[in-house]
């Protein structure tokens, strides 16, 4: 017998799991802590209606961040999602208005997002361009498209079917929240159980090794950016439906909030590890901060400072946890 492994193979397994639990729940613990602080500061925080409200408010960013998670696990980045939200919403509202058919409008919004996402993916994978540069360029370009398409004016949507997407309820739960949870459930399954999900981690963990192992890296990367675009399109439809209008500047800055949520969720910017569950926690943390600070009347100016600090703090804590592991 070659004693390659000196430790007991069975005993080593739970230790690894316990550690990832601490990491996973580390941010969850911070989430609970922040929620507890707001609960003490204001009686209006911990009420069913406020909690549901928070969920509805984070649904748009949450869906965008879900797609961003996949991209970041491949060690990429998608800066164009904010602009895709703007453009998809405008196209979706425009088509709904022109055809009077909400489903056509929704499809147009989703398709717009997916097309530009796939375009990003093709440029990045086939031409070996840096994700940062490609998506920075398309971010700028797409926001221009939005202004051209809308002429700088908002497009109003009155179609009741369309508005249901953003304003309707399933029982006590707002429809956007249902979509949000569905998106996370599907992506969780994809990452955990499918071959495609395995390749997303493999590409981020070691792209060269994946290529040498016969993984179709270009294809899977393109799918990932396509998914990110599609989800940005979906988020955009929800946003447009909730506001009953598509504004040309909708989605501005969403990419940064989404990236912040992903990082808070423990996904490494270097790729290869991360989870959508983490991202959901990150999204909720940001949502709770916003809602709580609104309730205790913190000026929006200070809110940004506080949010930036929290992101920094969370990442420092995360780094300390990871360091201990080494």
């Amino acid at each position: 017998m070659n004693m390659i492994n000196s430790t007991n193979p069975v005993a080593s397994k739970p230790a690894v799991n316990r550690l990832s639990l601490i990491q996973q729940y580390g941010m969850f613990f911070i989430l609970i802590l922040v929620a507890a602080i707001f609960t003490m500061l204001t009686p209006n925080f911990l009420t069913p209606s406020n909690l549901i409200n928070i969920l509805r408010q984070v649904s748009v960013i949450g869906i965008v961040a879900a797609g961003q998670t996949l991209v970041i696990i491949t060690s990429g980045i998608d800066l164009s999602v904010g602009s895709i939200v703007g453009l998809s919403g405008a196209v979706s509202a425009g088509v709904t208005l022109a055809t009077g058919n909400a489903f056509l409008g929704i499809a147009a919004g989703l398709l717009t997002g997916m097309v530009f996402g796939v375009a990003n993916g093709l440029l990045i994978s086939r031409l070996k361009l840096t994700p940062f540069i490609v998506t920075l360029a398309s971010m700028t370009m797409l926001s221009g498209f939005t202004l051209i398409y809308t002429g700088g004016n908002p497009i109003l949507v009155t179609n009741p079917v369309y508005k249901f997407i953003g304003q309707g309820y399933v029982g006590p739960i707002p429809f956007p929240v249902v979509v949000l949870l569905l998106v996370y459930a599907i992506l969780y399954f994809v990452l955990k159980r499918t071959v495609h999900g395995q390749y997303i981690y493999a590409i981020g963990g070691n792209e060269k090794a994946s290529l040498l192992a016969g993984v179709r890296v270009n294809l899977h990367k393109t799918i990932v950016y396509g998914t990110s675009g599609l989800l940005a399109g979906l988020a955009s439809v929800i946003l447009t439906a909730r506001l009953s209008s598509a504004t040309p500047v909708a989605g501005t800055g969403y990419e940064l909030d989404a990236i912040a949520a992903v990082i808070l969720g423990g996904t490494s910017l270097f790729g290869g590890k991360g989870s959508v569950v983490g991202t959901l926690i990150g999204v909720l943390l940001l949502g709770i901060l916003t809602s709580g600070m609104n309730l205790i009347n913190v000026s929006p100016f200070y809110q940004n400072v506080a949010k930036g600090l929290i992101v920094l703090l969370a990442v420092i804590i995360d780094r300390m946890i990871n360091k201990e592991k080494q």
Binding site: I4, N5, T7, P9, K13
Partner: peptide
């Protein structure tokens, strides 16, 4: 005859 934990 190699001893290595496949789950590590």
């Amino acid at each position: 005859q190699i001893e290595l934990d496949p789950h590590r």
